[in-house]
Design a protein around this nucleic acid. Structure first.
Lengths: 198, 198
DNA sequence: GCTATCCTGGAACGGTCATTCCGGGACCGG
DNA sequence: CCGGTCCCGGAATGACCGTTCCAGGATAGC
């Protein structure tokens, strides 16, 4: 082994991830990535391949480091509806304040700004969608077992609804929507689930 | 008056609108617009200005020709919840079948692929958001007057929720989500509004 | 210390981007 | 029919895009 990498690939990938996340796949240029990472074009191409591969790697990193942990917290929280509420509260907080405020969700952004005909991207988006829906569905099932839900509720369709609501939150957060009105939608939705037919 | 325009500006704008709608602001090039419209670059620039102005004009045309009519139908439909149901049904049909299937909503796409820091774009998106929310709110108020809703329902927050649900539908339709699962979310949501506390 | 191997830096590539400019021709008012 | 005015066609511009290539330097095994 004659030489070693002089940089941390995952660190570089994180910079790229943030660039793609904030500005979109089309508008974030390789040049911008080299500036953000301090890497040379050659190293970038040698490590990740072309731009498409880099974007895909960044997207996968986003799933691994951002989406999956949040989803994992939801899955491991056995409280039912309160778990769902906390999931949305954390989501809205992350979207409206802190370092990534106004960036939305990279996966939701990818629906619009990435090549949504690319089968690999599409599979990734579909995969994440399914997982989030299943996690919400499991939480709803838990809630039902604990008597938190009206008896006839269609948990599967409701889980899908909650995913779409989360997508909506992510979309709107990009124009700087205020956290309160977004939280209001969650409160209203959960009140509907919770208090109906008491 | 020495000369007249040899083309219909609005027709050209419609072609541009479709291009931006389908592919996004960043990926649709002026070259592609000239091909789609059959116009020369000169005519394009003389008529619309630069790319930013063309995109804004296309966005405004989308609001005028696509978003506002749908919203108008909702506003003029005095039936309350059935009006809301029909609004969503028409939305999902338009998103999942026909000529524009898989294109999503140009306004929702703009959240991710346009420059969401541009104040003019942001104002346009906020404006449309407010109008759709108000239309849904009015429909909910009508529903309440007709006894279709549970008494204590927060119609404002619920209207905002429905807008976000619509955004979610638009996002997911871009990856080719099937209409049935999207319709299921609407059915579940309306069932929650309708049947709760009967 | 030598050598073979890989990484790094920087230049260079062709292509495409948005934008501009000008010449030629078509039209309308007179 | 004529002249002035504007539109259309096409070429040209400079900047930036993603990608490739090559020379030089650093390293690990021997």
């Amino acid at each position: 082994m004659p030489d070693y990498k002089h940089f941390d690939p995952d660190n570089a990938l994180e910079r790229a991830e943030r660039l793609f996340w904030q500005h979109g796949a089309a508008k974030a240029s390789i040049q911008a990535v080299t500036v953000a990472t301090g890497l040379n074009r050659s190293s970038l191409y040698a490590t990740f391949g072309g731009k498409r591969e880099l974007y895909l790697a960044a997207l996968r990193r986003y799933v691994r480091h951002r989406a999956r942990p949040a989803q994992g917290r939801l899955t491991e929280d056995g409280r039912g509806l309160p778990a769902i509420r906390d999931f949305f509260t954390a989501l809205i907080t992350a979207r409206c304040s802190g370092e990534h405020a106004g960036w939305g969700c990279m996966l939701v952004n990818a629906h619009a700004d990435a090549d949504h005909t690319d089968p690999e991207i599409r599979a990734l988006l579909d995969d994440h969608h399914r997982q989030l829906r299943d996690a919400l569905h499991a939480a709803l099932e838990t809630a039902r077992e604990q008597g938190q839900l009206p008896p006839g509720l269609a948990t599967e369709a409701t889980a899908e609804t909650l995913v779409l609501l989360a997508y909506g939150v992510n979309v709107r957060s990009r124009t700087g929507a205020d956290a309160d009105s977004l939280l209001g939608t969650v409160t209203a939705t959960l009140a509907l689930l919770d208090a109906s037919c008491p």
